[in-house]
Amino acid sequence: MKKIIQKHPLAIRWLHWINFPILTIMIWSGLLIYWANDVYRIGWGSTTILKFFPDSFYKLLNVPFRLAEGMSMHFVFMWIFALNGLLYVLYLLFSKEWKLILPNKKSLKEAWLVVLHDLHIKKGTPPQKKYNAAQRIAYTGIIFMGIGMLLTGIAIYKPVQFHWLCALMGGYEWARIEHFTITILFVLFFLVHVIQVIIAGWNNFRGMITGFEVIKEKKQMPVIIEQKSAPKIDNTLNTDSHDVQA
């Protein structure tokens, strides 16, 4: 017999996986658009540390001269991206799942412990429920990044109709810079996310597909299931943290 726990609700699994190809398409078409005015870099004066993006990068991905294609794709798939994100936020709110994702008072301190743990600097598992503190911060951050994407996107897309929003973003040029910056953050999030999922392993990955996760018994400490009339948050996931890193 195996002990399992229901980890991810069906809605979250669908919304998560739909977001994956849609966000990929948005970033890809965004790159086709960005190429037409690729002026951003990291550097100062005439010193450039990193140009967004080097010509070899464009060549590798066959990006040049596809602005029209990028725009048509971006302005159609944006609706799906926005709708999917809206449904996700609404689901979090109405299922009260947000309580497991939003960081709390202890999260900042605990997130540091998670980082030390993940880098194998510190032994011992930081406390966690469904998500650990670092995950709470990251997964909440990504929601705000999504919102930021929509707001800066609307400001660039309809700067006259939404002139107040455009002004709020610091003007048209700033809105474009912010839109680009958040995209880079999305890509960085994605990289870390995938690495963490790979490290966390099959049981965790399966959780996002089937919804359940198998709980490994800890040898020295048998888990006591407290079956009260109404189960509380606290009797949820308290598994070996390596299984629930992502």
Binding site: M1, K2, K3, I4, I5, Q6, S95, K96, E97, K99, L100, K130, R206, I209, T210, G211, F212, V214, I215, I225, Q227, P231, K232, I233, N235, T236
Partner: peptide
């Protein structure tokens, strides 16, 4: 909260659920 409590199921059942999900 809304979490269903942990439950015990057979290994075969785990395999079936995993297969269907996949």
């Amino acid at each position: 909260m809304m979490y269903k409590p942990e439950k015990l199921i057979s290994e075969k059942n785990v395999r079936t659920k995993t297969f269907v999900g996949l």
